[in-house]
Design a protein around this nucleic acid. Sequence first.
DNA 1: GCCTCGCGCAACCAAATAGTTGCATTTAAG
DNA 2: CTTAAATGCAACTATTTGGTTGCGCGAGGC
Lengths: 109, 109
Amino acid sequence: MSPAKPQTVARVFAALGEPTRLKLVAVLCAGGAFSIAQLTANTNISRQAVTKHLHVLADAGVARGEKSGRERLWQLDPARIEEAKRTLEVIGRQWEAALGRLKSFVEAT
Amino acid sequence: MSPAKPQTVARVFAALGEPTRLKLVAVLCAGGAFSIAQLTANTNISRQAVTKHLHVLADAGVARGEKSGRERLWQLDPARIEEAKRTLEVIGRQWEAALGRLKSFVEAT
DNA sequence: GCCTCGCGCAACCAAATAGTTGCATTTAAG
DNA sequence: CTTAAATGCAACTATTTGGTTGCGCGAGGC
């Protein structure tokens, strides 16, 4: 399991760091595959705007879509999201470890 | 434990979604408090740029700094990061649950 | 007291981003 | 065959963003 390049993780965070895209991800994680028209229905922005957001998610490796008939069906790709989650876990653990060291240093009188 | 507003979580992701800021967080999670000058030393951008990034982190609730003498010491605030981590966990779980439902549906022949 | 270190504030700039509209294209439906 | 639906592509706009420079100010060090 490679530790995931910082750049890659940053791209995932950037992709999730926009309310519209976060909502899209929330819809997509319901499972299955959704067409752009379906994904646009729940928003108040244009179809092309949704398309752009989907491409941002795809570039970050968070979602992918493939053509099926006259529509393109999009679904989540949770691998990168898992990586990002692990990054946050590491941050939390390092923080707690540092707190522990600080505490034992203070107590070592 | 409130489920964390989507907007708040999105701000955290946006804050982490920039390589420089992610590095800053990585440094800060070593624990302790760092001055702006210290945090700037490891980068190749100006002190003011670092200051701006720190304010973005502060606005997202990821870090905070307080004056101490003639310098301002910054440290991590891991609460929001924990929230973001839980959000990613929920996404992963929902995805897996959906996969499970899909699988049992397919197998129900 | 003077100097310098560390910051904060403001103005400014270039690039990226979120959004739009208009039009062409492909595919399913009647 | 004709039409309508779903998408892709391109141009354009406004705002945000990441970065800079310059200057002023408070707090220590000598």
